[in-house]
Amino acid sequence: MNPETITAARAVYQKIAGNIGKVIQGQSGATRKLLAALASGGHVLLEDFPGTGKTTLAKALARSIDASFKRIQFTPDLLPSDILGVAIFNQRDQAFHFHEGPIFTNILLADEINRASPRTQSALLEAMGESQVSIDGEHRTLSELFFVIATENPVEFRGTYPLPEAQMDRFAMRFTLGYVSPEEEVSILAAQQSQHPLEALKACVTLAEVLQLKQVVQAMRISDELKRYVVDLVGATRKAAGVQLGASPRASLALMKAAQALALFDGLEFVTPEQIQELAIPVIAHRLVMEPQARFAGVTARGVVEGILKSTKVPA
């Protein structure tokens, strides 16, 4: 791959990040992770308290790319057909016509995903895992760029359904935005005094450029030693105390791909241990099923992964 292509791909990342930065302040880390997921073909679950900017972040990303964007507000009465689409009988020509659901898009914002029943949530399984949907026994392929950003809020329990483990595993990353510093919050207030900056946001990259970025990321080099390190980290969760179900090989794959994307963002052509360490918690932690006793004892999945990062010898 010639250096110009790599530089161009990196420029795409910088453009999108810059564009998002105009709207979301003090969340460069989250933007970086979000774009790493986008570039590596994974999906993202944003988990944070209400009002921290989850939806804004997703919308900012969608607006920055000249691609189709749809949003589903998850509610308890949402049905799978509301997501996938439905075949309706047309009386005039006596035939069924398929009406595509919101899933046929490039960027899908699944807002408050845990408010829908697991039955509806599961409609996303096939789409997220294989980039295709099966409706009425017919396979329909989704577009080449299909990126799901789901949000959920961790404080509510009533009227919410926890995501099934299989659904959790479909997300490449789960991370939080967190509260910003007081100074940044003040500048958010200043920026939105007259008008939400989101309104003024214009697309800065084309769909073709994003697809090119994805291809460059796939070509980022990673040594066998670091692949082994990824496998060691993920494998350690299966033996860790307090963990009922460790992470799957899908986690290893997602970690490697996302680390490749970060390597590109960092101006490298190969992956270094730093990128793997940076992404280990968002990629691995949400896939772990903790033992109830460990959970009551205050052991968190995040803590387990942190412990593994500290105790596993990092290649240097």
Binding site: T272, P273, E274, Q277, L309, K310, S311, T312, K313, V314, A316
Partner: peptide, 10 residues
């Protein structure tokens, strides 16, 4: 000294 889980950068 470098701890076992510490990357070179940190």
């Amino acid at each position: 000294p470098r701890r076992p889980g510490e990357s070179l950068t940190s």
